[in-house]
Design a protein around this nucleic acid. Structure first.
Length: 491
RNA sequence: CGGGGCGUAGCGUAGUCCGGUUAUCGCGCCUGCUUUGGGAGCAGGAGGUCGCAGGUUCGAGUCCUGCCGCCCCGACCA
């Protein structure tokens, strides 16, 4: 008898942690803060990569690869940027080891010290803009639309699987443009690509908005964000897209001659999403039985489990299951037939529920006699017996239904966990007791923002992009405000 | 880096206060038989430098000193 997961309502953090490990997504490694992404978790990331990569290429971006190591001096070029990242950089100082004096182990060879230390990239703006200086001379070289799939490292104080790790897998896009307007459009375009991906594939509704000055990316002129709401009422930043203005072009001397023959600095953007998306996926849809995956990202969409007693029954059932698997594969359904004889059906039922496989098909002697199969939905846990004749069509429809249902359920959750307040007292109560997104008026100053954060742990997640203007007074200072902003406690 | 806690089999743990034959239990693992439509049962078996290094003692998982690692809370954060 295997152990149950902790309950979400009792200990959300423990539930999440156990679920990630038990479902086979990832585990902690012997290097603090660095996780091992296991095959099942990596399969989800590969699906995410494939879909996003296609969307990037469809909008004219090309993939490239820049070095992991960045000369230290590059990071001092853009003042705000270094301010934001200096505290969490891993530094390479030597290039050789040697046997220790007791011959038992190795030590760093003090004679192999680097003249200039190298920084493991916390993000690649600096080395990329250093390179762009050589690539860009004329308006004819623009726009330059580059993406890279890579890893980066930020020495986080308190790591958590997928949500906050020291080493992170991600993609980072870095583009250069001839005009302010074009760069800004690019940053917004990529935000919309993220939004569409997260909504359509991850079945997760998002809030699109602008970060306040306080929460803005170090070195950006404007940061756009997509914010998701988790089941425990905390917000999660799922992706960001930055309009860099001319800051990095100025810091790295990236200029071009425009059509009028004048020299100007180029305009930049950068945008990225990380394996944190997997954490968002887990925390949004899953339940106390385990993972719940939306069909469009599930590595296995349907699992077939044969049920039998005798060896003769086993042969007949597996034969039929193999035929059904082939029919599903032919229609592009990701199906797995688990015909291992080393585990019992009940064990497999629980196992694939833990792993969040959207649909389970059980087939046994009774089904062979009745020309049926049993289907079970992971999301609603509903079971149904259907005729074998309709299996493929029914499954395709159910997969679409599950995708839609998960999205709708997440939308409903977000709506019931979004609250408008007009007073600071009401704000504090909602943040402390209910959580979720809280819409309130704010006077636009970092000072007020910091005071509210210090008192309630809630931060301004974003200034919504698509909200209608509404005049009011800041709940904290009473000063005038033109729009509500979104507060929440966040990961 | 500040505060708190914990290191005993692959995992989770009892024992540590108050030192004493062979270190407890559960899960998992292996073998056999019976089982197989919701995490099977019975029987047998394997698996341990008690985090590391010193010290006290006739005797240390247990007491003392130092070190290392991990977890939780805070500051930080995609």
């Amino acid at each position: 008898m295997a152990q149950k997961l902790p309950k979400r309502t009792e200990d959300f953090a423990a539930w999440y942690n156990e679920l990630v490990k038990r479902a086979g997504l990832a585990e902690n490694s012997s290097v603090r803060g660095c996780m091992i992404i296991k095959p099942y978790g990596f399969a989800i990331w590969e699906k995410m990569q494939a879909i996003l990569d296609q969307a990037f290429k469809a909008t004219g971006h090309e993939n490239a690869y820049f070095p992991l190591l960045i000369p230290k001096s590059y990071l001092s070029r853009e003042a705000e940027h270094i301010e934001g990242f200096a505290k969490e950089c891993a530094v390479v100082t030597h290039y050789r080891l040697k046997k220790s004096s007791d011959r038992q182990g190795v030590v760093v060879d003090p004679e192999a010290q680097l003249e200039e230390e190298l920084i493991i990239r916390p993000t690649s703006e600096t080395i990329i803009w250093h390179t762009y200086k050589n690539w860009i001379k004329s308006y004819r070289d623009l726009p330059l639309l580059i993406n890279q799939w890579s890893n980066m490292m930020r020495w986080e104080m308190r790591p958590r699987l997928f949500l906050r790790t020291a080493e992170v897998l991600w993609q980072e896009g870095h583009t250069a443009h001839a005009t302010r307007e074009e760069a800004k459009q690019e940053a917004l375009q990529m935000l919309h690509i993220y939004d569409k991906f997260v909504r359509d594939y991850m079945a997760l509704p998002l809030l699109k908005g602008i970060k306040t000055e306080h929460e803005r990316f170090a070195g950006a002129e404007e940061t756009y964000t997509i914010e998701a709401l988790m089941q425990d009422g905390k917000a999660l930043q799922a992706g960001t897209s930055h309009f860099l203005g001319q800051k990095f072009a100025q810091a790295f001397g990236v200029t071009f001659t425009n059509q009028a023959g004048q020299l100007d600095h180029v305009w930049g953007t950068s945008w990225g999403v990380t394996t944190r998306l997997i954490g968002a996926l887990v925390m949004t849809h899953s339940d106390d039985e385990g993972l719940v995956l939306p069909p469009r990202l599930a590595p296995i969409q349907v699992v077939i489990i044969p049920v039998y007693k005798s060896e003769a029954e086993r042969r007949l059932v597996v034969q039929q299951a193999t035929t059904l698997r082939a029919a599903l594969l032919a229609q592009g359904v990701a199906v797995k037939l688990d015909d291992r004889d080393t585990h019992k059906p009940g064990w497999k039922f629980a196992e694939y529920e833990l792993k969040g496989v959207p649909l389970r098909m059980a087939i046994g002697p009774i089904d062979l006699a009745n020309h049926t199969v049993e289907l079970a939905r992971r999301d609603t846990r509903a079971k149904m017996t259907i005729s074998m004749d309709n299996v493929v069509g029914t499954i395709q429809k159910l997969l679409r239904d599950i995708q839609d249902y998960l999205y709708q359920r997440a939308v409903d959750f977000r709506e019931t966990h979004t609250t408008s307040v007009n007073t600071y007292e009401a704000f504090k109560t909602v943040i402390a007791q209910k959580g979720g997104f809280v819409l309130a008026h704010w006077d636009g100053t970092t000072e007020t923002e910091k005071k509210i954060q210090a008192a309630t742990k809630a931060t301004i997640r974003c200034i919504p992009l698509d909200a209608s203007p509404e005049t009011g007074n800041c709940m904290y200072t009473g000063k005038p405000s033109r729009q509500r902003v979104v507060f929440a406690q966040a990961y």
